[in-house]
């Protein structure tokens, strides 16, 4: 009897989790290079003894979290016109030196700091092939080629380092659109184009998220009804059994 309640509970917990992930996707609909996530669930099967009229062990399945899968497809390209806004078209990540070590990001809104170093909006230096990239006003109009080569009036300044990973889905999100390598070692990316004056938007599709949200809500409602029915049954059983003449 309790199994029905517990199975409902497992589904309710899963619904809450789905809702959290959908909320985070929608909250980040305007976050550059944010990659949407989708929770996946799996069955957890248990065996229970047969009820009257059944033979053999019966199986019951609960819902269990399996993981949150990141959609690594590319977001749309949005024009900003800012000189140090970059979008990676193709595979790859920028390398950023944070106080906690190297982190990776696809969000390419960079600026210069007081010493002319290319930094993220958190002030972390963007890495070139040979360390941070420093642009001085004497470099004049800076040109950034599609392969990341930065050149000024006095020749090449450096090259923005773009790396890729064997398994980009296994990177760990750290917030601030940064990823932690999580044990993988970066390899240099070769099939990308760097677009200047553009920003990659998030790959969240509001229509999909909203329809998922409705789906989750309805499923939750169904389970809630099931739980309610189950409870009514229990109460009726107690009432009936309790009123039996002794």
């Amino acid at each position: 009897m309790d199994n029905a309640l517990l199975i409902s509970l497992s589904h309710q917990i899963a619904s809450y989790r789905s809702m959290d992930v959908i909320a985070n996707n929608l909250a980040n609909v305007s976050t550059p290079a944010f990659q949407r996530e989708e929770p996946t669930f799996q069955e957890y099967v248990t065996r229970v003894p047969p009820a009257e009229g059944q033979s053999g062990m019966q199986s019951l399945s609960f819902v269990q979290d399996a993981g949150v899968v990141r959609d690594i497809s590319e977001g749309r390209m949005e024009h900003t016109g800012a000189q140090f806004d970059f979008a990676i078209h193709g595979k790859g990540f920028f390398t950023v030196q944070t106080p906690n070590g190297e982190r990776y990001t696809r969000a390419g809104h960079f600026t210069l700091n007081d010493s002319g170093q290319l930094v993220t909006s958190n002030g972390d230096a963007v890495q070139g092939d040979g360390g941070p990239i420093t642009i001085t006003p004497d470099d004049g109009e800076v040109h950034i080629a599609q392969d990341g080569t930065v050149s000024g009036k006095n020749g090449q300044i450096g090259r923005i380092r773009v790396v890729d990973f064997q398994n980009p889905r296994a990177l760990l999100k750290e917030g601030a659109t940064l990823y932690n390598a999580n044990g993988q070692s970066p390899v240099s990316a070769d099939s990308f184009q760097l677009q200047t004056g553009m920003i990659e938007t998030s790959n969240v599709e509001p229509v999909i998220e909203i329809s998922h949200m409705i789906e989750v809500m309805r499923a939750y409602q169904a389970t809630a009804t099931l739980t309610q029915t189950q409870e009514d049954l229990m109460r009726q059983a107690i009432d009936k059994l309790g009123s039996m003449p002794s």
Binding site: N24, N28, T40, A170, G175
Partner: peptide, 12 residues
């Protein structure tokens, strides 16, 4: 190993 973990974001 787990191919994907469970990471729940806190918003924007």
């Amino acid at each position: 190993v787990l191919p994907s973990g469970i990471q729940i974001g806190a918003g924007v």
